[in-house]
């Protein structure tokens, strides 16, 4: 299964997201050397208290096996999304492990105000 497929299955059937689509991303000149996939969908409930209802979340999936990433790669992800929709305040990063575990992290654009846990 490709990265996109694995992440899609995990989001839909394990985390109960709906309406998840995989987006084709044009390879730009500064492409990242690592395989990744871009998806968007609706989570079952608001991911953060301050979100609007029904906010469409963007998900970038990377293989954990490709161990490295960099600030410029993250910037590229935001730009890839910018070509499809207005630049979001945050993106969800999905790390796919070779044992089928997928862990999700929020990547916010900028330094967030620290909140209570």
């Amino acid at each position: 299964m490709s990265i996109a497929q694995q992440t899609l299955t995990n989001l839909v059937h394990y985390n109960l997201w709906t309406d998840v689509t995989v987006h084709d991303v044009q390879e730009s000149a500064e492409s990242t050397p690592y395989r990744f996939a871009l998806l968007s969908g609706l989570p079952p409930s608001k991911l953060d208290q301050s979100d609007k209802e029904g906010l469409r979340e963007w998900v970038i999936a990377r293989l954990l096996e490709d161990r490295h990433s960099s600030m410029s790669e993250i910037e590229q992800f935001f730009r890839a999304i910018e070509s499809l929709a207005p630049r979001p305040k945050r993106v969800t990063l999905a790390l796919v492990n070779d044992d089928a575990t997928v862990t999700y992290y929020f990547v916010h654009d900028g330094a967030i105000k620290p909140r209570q846990n």
């Binding site: 694995q6 299955t9 995990n10 059937h13 394990y14 044992d99 089928a100 575990t101």
Partner: peptide, 11 residues
């Protein structure tokens, strides 16, 4: 590991 579970396949 079960692809849609935490450890044992129970999906």
């Amino acid at each position: 590991k079960g692809t849609l579970s935490r450890s044992e396949p129970s999906w």
